[in-house]
Amino acid sequence: MTPHTLAGIRASNQLGEVQAALHPGPGAARLLFPINDNVLNTADPHRLAALHRDLPLVYIGNQYDRDRQFDRYFAPAAAEVDHLVAGKWTTTDRWPHVHFIGRIPFPEVDRLYRRSLATVLLAPDRTAARGQFTQRIFEAVLAGCLPITPSELRSADKVVPEELIITDAADVRHVLDKLAALSGGTGHADLIGRCLRHLEIFRLSTQLETLNDLLYHSTAPHGGWIAR
């Protein structure tokens, strides 16, 4: 941060509301979850595609308000392919066929993604409607695990390639079959590379520029937000 930014933090408590969403609510500014520039710059899609992936499908994350999407997208596909679900899931009786393994230590997250071909991005309805994408997509893509994404996650096309956007469980299985055919080849590396390029909007440097702008305009005499 620049000295001006630090001065702005000290001088004002009127920054206002920011939301980590592509479509923040009324009166809020957009400030996305950041991904380290150097990590993104150095990710190698060919090396990631060459990893042995023995697990077709994985989900890493907690249950909170995701039951409807889990029912619609993940659970039907899990009945047909090998899979694992890691995270805090306290009510699972309705999915006896799903393999829940509970919480895992953070270092295990990367290892699990690196052995998995794909994941499905799931979000509570309230954040899906705002186009909020968390660090889970970074963790998956940086490990070469491809993020199959429901179209109901607003602006999904800005975050993942078109062929990974789905509308139902049949689409999930269709995409998994196509990915299995590509696995380890140049087409696989190309798709991972395009997923990495779709993460550009989350760059830390971009978010810092946005934060500097917000702090400047919150302390300027005229006040107000920059529309983005």
Score class of each variant (00 low, 15 high):
T167G: 13
T186G: 13
L146C: 06
I137F: 03
G187W: 06
I226E: 01
A77H: 07
L191I: 09
D93R: 02
I101N: 13
N62V: 04
D37I: 13
R136C: 04
H99E: 15
L182F: 12
L146I: 13
A7N: 10
I148F: 02
S205Y: 00
A227P: 03
Q14L: 13
S205N: 04
M1F: 11
L55S: 03
Q19N: 13
A7H: 09
A29W: 02
L84V: 12
F202E: 04
L15S: 03
H188N: 12
V109G: 01
T167N: 13
R154E: 14
E209F: 06
A11D: 14
H217K: 07
P147R: 00
V160N: 03
L164M: 05
D168Y: 11
G224W: 02
F74V: 05
E163Q: 14
V175P: 02
I60P: 00
L204Y: 12
D54R: 10
L142I: 11
G193S: 07
S12L: 10
L146F: 11
L182P: 00
L55F: 05
R115K: 05
F74G: 04
G16P: 08
H198N: 09
S205I: 05
H4R: 15
T219D: 04
W95Q: 06
D171H: 12
K88V: 15
L208H: 06
G102L: 06
K178I: 14
T186S: 15
G131F: 07
F106V: 11
C195R: 01
L55R: 10
Q14G: 12
V85N: 04
C145F: 11
H4A: 15
R30A: 05
H174T: 15
F74N: 02
Q63P: 00
P150N: 08
H198C: 06
A78I: 05
K158M: 15
S183I: 14
V18C: 12
V39P: 01
A77V: 08
S12F: 03
T210K: 01
P76V: 09
F70S: 00
P26Y: 09
Y64T: 12
F74Q: 02
E200V: 08
M1D: 03
T134F: 08
A29L: 10
P150Y: 10
W225E: 02
N13W: 12
H188A: 12
A227D: 13
W95A: 02
F33R: 08
I60N: 04
W95H: 04
S155A: 01
F33W: 14
Q69N: 04
P24S: 10
A78N: 01
H46D: 14
D171K: 09
L121T: 03
N41R: 10
A118G: 01
E80G: 10
N41W: 09
L214H: 05
P107K: 03
D82E: 14
T42H: 13
R103L: 15
A189K: 06
A21K: 00
A180N: 10
L146W: 15
